[in-house]
Write a protein that binds this DNA or RNA. Structure first.
Lengths: 154, 154
DNA sequence: TCATTATTAGTAACTATTACTGTTATTTGA
DNA sequence: TCAAATAACAGTAATAGTTACTAATAATGA
């Protein structure tokens, strides 16, 4: 069984268009963009190639909490911040976590640690301004792990 | 319009059963457990109450990357580790992130930062042993943001 | 060039979750 | 205490993101 991957026009263009942008598009959004160059491409093909490129480590797949998956042409380790209002995702600089025994077995949990995901959430500049001009309206839903929220259990 | 919440047997038992366990069950799993006490409860009721209790800050909703949502009877801020093989989720102790201007506007991104989510991934003790006994087989899929993975872009 | 087969387009199926609808039962206050 | 008001319910249908299926197409190595 040959496990090599063929070089197709569809795969090439999906990768090219993803690498052009910094907006962390969803599969559906990237599909729209790619269709300008390949009108007959199917959404399934976009999904399949994104998944393959992700498995190969060429791109990154961002499955943020409970949201539609987004893709990132930059596979290097970096973190993201997501707007809780509009879903926009941007890169966020944060130093790597310290004292993480990656590859080692963590003795408190028994897990062999492979890595981590760190995602910030907040209000993007646009949604922040919109909210401020509309006066007082609280955060629309409970954003898990908001730092000020720290009440004791029972 | 009265926005108070009624105290129903269904809501009470969903909360009780969630608070009994430390296994971070999915809605479907909790539904199975709750049915032992309320055979006629519907899955929608479990979902609705979990969502309400989450909004009220009584429980935590863990929407780990791309996975089925899990619920945690402990709403205090803490982090989790997920097994990339079997999906199991455990608590993981890690100190709070430093130098995070929560509530402030981050000048590099323009976001008002509200909080963050930190999730580790790895192999739980069981899956680790299973894998070791089956000899060499690599991690089945690309676990995003694995720390050793750090190649330059393009 | 040709045979092999990975990949495609198009579509159907799947799954977690939410919405809808008529019924039930908690709440409230007369 | 009792009954009106309505939040919440059970049961079911709908939604949305994603994956699986199938016959046709095209990339690849001989």
């Amino acid at each position: 069984m040959n496990t090599s991957h063929r070089h197709t026009r569809q795969r090439q263009i999906v990768l090219e268009e993803l690498q052009k942008v910094t907006s962390h598009p969803t599969a559906a959004r990237l599909y729209e963009v790619v269709r300008h160059r390949l009108p007959k491409i199917s959404l399934g093909t976009v999904y399949r190639n994104l998944e393959l490129l992700h498995r190969l480590g060429v791109i990154a797949k961002l499955q943020m909490a409970g949201e539609e998956a987004r893709y990132d042409g930059n596979p290097r380790r970096h973190d993201h911040i997501r707007c809780v209002q509009c879903g926009r995702v941007d890169d966020m600089a944060y130093p790597q976590l310290l004292d993480l025994p990656v590859g080692q077995v963590d003795h408190s949990t028994g897990y062999r640690i492979l890595g981590y995901r760190l995602e910030f959430h907040g209000l993007c500049a646009l949604c922040r301004q919109k909210r401020e001009s509309e006066a007082s309206s609280p955060v629309p839903f409970h954003t898990d792990h908001a730092v000020p929220f720290n009440q004791p259990r029972e």
